[in-house]
Computed example of a mutant assay.
Amino acid sequence: MSHQGNGDHQHHHQAVDGLVNLLTKANNDLTVVHNRLDKEFRQVYPDNANPMKLVARIKKIQDQLPSLKDQCQELLSAKQDLIDKARTTIVGNRASSQRLQASMGIPVTNDSDDPAYTNFNEVIDEWALQVRSKTGNDGHEDSDSEDINKMLFSAIVHGT
Results as ranks from 00 to 15, higher is better:
Thr88Trp: 06
Pro66Gly: 05
Ser2Asn: 02
Ile124Glu: 15
Gln14Ala: 08
Ile106Cys: 07
Ser67Tyr: 15
Asn121Gln: 02
His34Asp: 03
Pro66Gln: 08
His3Cys: 10
Glu141Ile: 07
Thr24Cys: 02
Pro66Glu: 07
Gln101Asn: 08
Thr88Gln: 09
Asn121Ile: 01
His158Ile: 09
Asn110Asp: 13
Ile58Ser: 14
Lys25Ser: 13
Asn50Val: 04
Met151Asp: 15
Leu54Gln: 04
Asn119Thr: 02
His13Tyr: 06
Gln62Asn: 06
His9Thr: 07
Ala56Gly: 12
Asp111Ala: 06
Ser97Trp: 12
Trp127Ser: 04
Val157Cys: 04
Asp84Glu: 09
Ile58Leu: 10
Asp142Cys: 01
Lys134Arg: 13
Asn137Phe: 14
Val32Gln: 12
Leu68Asp: 03
Pro107Met: 03
Ala15Thr: 12
Asn149Arg: 13
Lys53Ala: 09
Gln71Trp: 09
Met104Trp: 08
Lys53Pro: 03
Leu30Arg: 11
Asp138Val: 14
Ile90Leu: 09
Lys150His: 11
Leu82Phe: 12
Lys69Val: 13
Arg87Val: 15
Leu37Gly: 00
Ala49Cys: 12
Leu22Pro: 01
Ser143Leu: 05
Arg87Thr: 13
Leu76His: 02
Asp138Thr: 10
Arg87Ala: 10
Pro107Asp: 03
Asp147Tyr: 15
Leu37Asp: 03
Ser96Arg: 14
Leu100Asp: 07
Asp47Phe: 09
Val157Trp: 07
Asp47Ser: 15
Asp63Gln: 04
Ser77Met: 11
Gln62Met: 14
Asp111Val: 10
Asp38Pro: 02
Leu75Asn: 06
Lys150Met: 07
Thr89Met: 09
Ala155Thr: 09
Phe41Cys: 14
Arg99Ala: 13
